[in-house]
Simulated assay, not measured.
Amino acid sequence: MVNPVLQREDDLSLNEAIAERKLGVSRKFAIALLDHFDHTGVTTRVGDTRRLRS
């Protein structure tokens, strides 16, 4: 689910606004989902963006 969204971005980064728009969910849900990905190791938070972990 995250991989296709991140692969569309040039630098493989994602923020709340991009997740909200690309996933078609509310900002509240996008933030919770991205936080879950951070905690489970799918992404790493760098400032206001998330980067896909290698």
Rank of each mutant, 00 (worst) to 15 (best):
R50P: 03
V5P: 01
T43K: 00
L52V: 04
I31E: 14
R45I: 12
N15D: 14
R45S: 14
R51M: 12
V5S: 04
R45A: 12
R50G: 08
S54H: 11
T44L: 15
R53A: 13
A30D: 02
I31V: 09
P4N: 03
A30C: 02
H36I: 09
R53T: 13
S54C: 06
D11W: 09
L33V: 04
D11G: 06
V42E: 09
S54M: 06
D35L: 02
R51G: 05
D38H: 00
E16F: 05
V5C: 06
R53Q: 07
E20R: 15
S26V: 06
A17G: 04
Q7D: 13
N15C: 14
L52Q: 09
L23S: 05
F29M: 12
R21I: 04
I18R: 05
L6Y: 05
P4G: 02
T44M: 11
H36V: 08
E20P: 02
A17K: 08
R51E: 11
F29T: 15
G24S: 07
S26I: 09
H39K: 15
A32V: 06
E9K: 09
S13C: 05
P4L: 03
D35V: 02
L23M: 12
R50A: 05
L33S: 08
I31N: 07
R45H: 09
L6V: 15
T44D: 11
R51W: 01
P4K: 03
R50N: 07
L6N: 08
V2F: 11
F37A: 15
A32Y: 02
T44G: 04
F29L: 15
R21S: 11
R21G: 02
R27N: 07
E16D: 10
L33E: 05
R53K: 14
S13G: 01
H39P: 00
D48C: 13
R51I: 13
V25M: 14
H39F: 07
T44N: 11
L52F: 02
K28D: 08
L12K: 12
A32H: 05
R8F: 03
R21P: 00
R45T: 11
Q7Y: 04
N3K: 15
V5Q: 01
D10F: 09
V5A: 12
D11Y: 12
